[in-house]
């Protein structure tokens, strides 16, 4: 019984963290461009450097 007192809050807490993370990702627009996100991982730099790209 005492084990449950730890395990149930732990299970619920982890689930809630996952839910909160998902809702945050949704709100911050991370699901707007799934095709683009798959490609962006291949770039050298996420934020292009001006000194190089302007050349």
């Amino acid at each position: 019984m005492t084990a449950l007192a730890f395990l149930i809050p732990a299970a619920l807490g982890l689930g809630l963290i996952g839910l909160a993370a998902f809702l945050w990702a949704l709100r911050s627009g991370q699901f707007e461009d799934l095709d683009g996100a798959a490609e962006r991982i291949l770039y050298d730099d996420e934020r292009p450097r001006r000194d190089r790209d302007a050349a």
Binding site: E32, D33, D35, G36, E39, R47, P48, R50, D53
Partner: peptide, 19 residues
């Protein structure tokens, strides 16, 4: 994105590939 970002005065340029 890199071409537009290189233009002076541009704050951000973002392309959405899905849309």
């Amino acid at each position: 994105e890199s071409t537009l970002a290189a233009v002076p005065g541009v704050i951000s340029a973002r392309v959405n590939l899905s849309a």
